Simulated assay, not measured.
Amino acid sequence: MKKIKTAQLKQLVEAAIFVADAPVSIQRLRDTVLSDFTVAERTLKTVINELTLDYQPRGIQLVKVASGYRFQSVDALSPWLSKLWQETAPKYSRAMMETLALIAYRQPITRGEIEQVRGVAVSSSIMKTLTEREWVKVVGHKEVPGRPALYATTSTFLDYFSLSSLSELPNSDAFDEMAKSIDSTSSLKVLNEAPSEVTDRATENKQIKSDTND
């Protein structure tokens, strides 16, 4: 195994994360671009922290999401950067976002439990879309008659919405004051505003990353 100078290591890590088509974890860096070198995990983390600081005042930032590290544009620049694309960002129905929010906040949860909270049936197309996008997956079956599937979010969901863990989801307690002033059946609508905001931001970031890779 060869040694590598800190300056070269920093360049290699920066380039690897930049050209990757998905977030890159420390383990993946060690198994791929750094496989020929002796690099302690602590040293690698230090280099990544230095890169993060280097990019803080710039238009592109190095951020950590669930699957690893990636470069993405600063949120505040999105109104202007969005003009680079003629097509509009994908829009998702309120029913889909309500379903996704329930899975995110109450996972693991069955389809029947989602329908019970929403008060309406969850269409098969919604569940199909969420699973095809790999935002949710079946993680088991509830031990009740019929053994319905239990759904939970995935690391792809976290990556897409620029989250490193579920703990970064807006705390439902923050909506308590607003929820008190509306009908209990509307409380869920307030809760769903948070994931909607994250959707817009993450979509824009994903578009920037896609254009950079091209």
Rank of each mutant, 00 (worst) to 15 (best):
P108E: 02
S93C: 08
G140Y: 02
K45T: 13
V13H: 05
T131P: 00
E132L: 09
Q8E: 15
S162D: 14
I126R: 02
L100H: 01
D54F: 08
V24H: 04
R30F: 04
D173K: 11
S186H: 10
S73K: 05
S82M: 03
L53Q: 12
N213Q: 13
Y151H: 06
M127Y: 07
T6C: 08
T32Q: 13
R147V: 00
Q86P: 05
S184V: 08
M1F: 08
S123L: 04
A95E: 15
T185C: 13
M1H: 05
K64I: 03
Q11W: 07
K142M: 08
T99G: 05
T32G: 13
S164G: 05
S164V: 00
E204I: 05
K91L: 14
K5L: 13
T131I: 12
K83D: 10
Q27E: 14
E143A: 14
I60E: 06
A89P: 11
K91I: 13
S67G: 07
W80M: 14
V122A: 14
L163K: 00
S162E: 11
A40C: 04
Q56M: 08
E143N: 15
K206R: 10
K180Q: 15
Q61C: 03
T156R: 09
L102E: 02
F71M: 10
K128N: 11
L166P: 04
V144T: 11
T32L: 10
V63Y: 01
D211Y: 12
L158E: 05
D159C: 09
F37S: 09
Y105N: 05
T32C: 12
I182C: 11
S196R: 14
S125V: 11
W135E: 04
V136C: 13
D211E: 07
E115R: 02
K3I: 13
S210N: 10
P79R: 01
F18W: 15
N49D: 09
Y160R: 11
M97H: 10
V65M: 02
V190W: 12
Q61R: 10
S186N: 14
E50G: 01
Q207K: 12
L158K: 03
N213L: 15
Y151R: 09
D21Y: 03
L163P: 11
A149F: 01
G59Q: 10
T185Y: 03
I182E: 12
L158I: 08
V136M: 04
E168W: 01
L34N: 00
A174I: 09
S196P: 00
K128Q: 12
L62E: 11
M178H: 10
V63N: 06
S186P: 04
L150N: 07
S35Y: 07
N49M: 00
P108W: 05
D173Y: 04
A152Q: 10
V117E: 13
Y55K: 03
T153I: 15
K180M: 14
R28I: 05
L34R: 03
A20N: 01
G119E: 06
A95P: 00
L130Y: 07
S184R: 06
M96D: 09
M178R: 03
V144Q: 13
A194T: 03
T32Y: 03
P148D: 06
G140C: 01
A89F: 02
T46D: 12
D200E: 15
T52L: 00
P57F: 02
V33F: 01
L150G: 13
